[in-house]
């Protein structure tokens, strides 16, 4: 049932809604400001929250990093995953953010010095959603890097694995299973659940554009080759869930 409304008049229900919004908007802004302050206070010590922090520094900045940059968190993560992870963080980088700082030389070759690795703090229950929401609002301002649409295609585990390990050499630094691959980069067997596919494509295509001091090489892969790798990450990621 619709009521006719006189021109210029505001119906009662709309009045209620508008007054509720008038109350909520300043509150929401205040909350966002609070979250911003909270993130600056709690995260900025280990994570770059602006691109300038990295772009304006020389390459030795990479060796001082304690955590991955967050200035493009909104382009990178899946929000639900981020909320869950902030509540219950698990290690994604087996050798920490800067592996040489967590490596010791032994007679059997270099090994990870686990005693030096610090676990990420779990956020209090009331904060995870707010912080994840705030971080999802952080985007790269430079240029539109997310310009590829991902359309999943079928790939067999055998071919995907061969591509990842033998042909593209991703396994030099990344794990595609808990027991296979390098440990200096973040593990990729759960990449699908935590990252947006368009980001995966873009980051593989041009990692330096996202992070000028990234340790991820730009392999000059063709769009099709990148999509195949993402198809494999999807396959192993869904199997891991």
């Amino acid at each position: 049932m619709f009521h006719s409304v006189r021109k210029g008049a505001v119906p009662g229900s709309l009045k209620v809604l508008l007054s509720a919004m008038a109350c909520w908007l300043p509150l929401a802004t205040a909350l966002a400001e609070d979250v911003g302050q909270y993130v600056s206070k709690s995260c900025a010590g280990c994570h770059a929250l602006t691109q300038a922090e990295i772009k304006n520094a020389d390459v030795s900045e990479r060796a001082r990093r304690k955590g991955p940059p967050l200035y493009y968190a909104g382009d990178k993560f899946k929000q639900k995953w981020l909320e869950r992870w902030l509540a219950k963080p698990v290690r994604l980088r087996p050798a920490g953010s800067f592996p040489p700082d967590h490596t010791i030389v032994t007679d059997d070759g270099d090994v990870i010095d686990r005693a030096t690795l610090k676990d990420h703090l779990a956020l209090p229950a009331g904060k995870t959603k707010l912080v994840a929401g705030y971080l999802m609002g952080l985007h790269m301002g430079d240029k539109p890097l997310l310009n590829s649409q991902y359309k999943p295609k079928k790939i067999s585990k055998m071919l995907g694995s061969m591509d990842f390990n033998k042909f593209k050499g991703c396994s030099a630094c990344h794990r595609d299973a808990a027991d296979n691959g390098g440990v200096s980069g973040p593990e990729l067997y759960t990449a699908w659940s935590r990252m947006q596919p368009e980001f995966l494509i873009s980051y593989i295509k041009d990692p330096v554009a996202w992070d000028v001091h990234t340790m991820m090489p730009d392999k000059h892969l063709k769009e099709k080759e990148i999509h195949k790798l993402v198809d494999y990450l999807k396959l192993i990621g869904e199997a891991a869930q």
């Binding site: 060796a63 050798a95 040489p100 490596t103 030389v105 270099d110 296979n180 390098g182 440990v183 200096s184």
Partner: peptide, 23 residues
């Protein structure tokens, strides 16, 4: 070298970096 190479070539450059176990 420390940033880009030691993960595979080792902290001492001897080829025994932390990534080599599965290579």
């Amino acid at each position: 070298y420390k940033i880009y190479c030691t993960q595979c070539h080792g902290l001492e450059g001897d080829g025994y970096g932390i990534n080599v176990a599965d290579m």
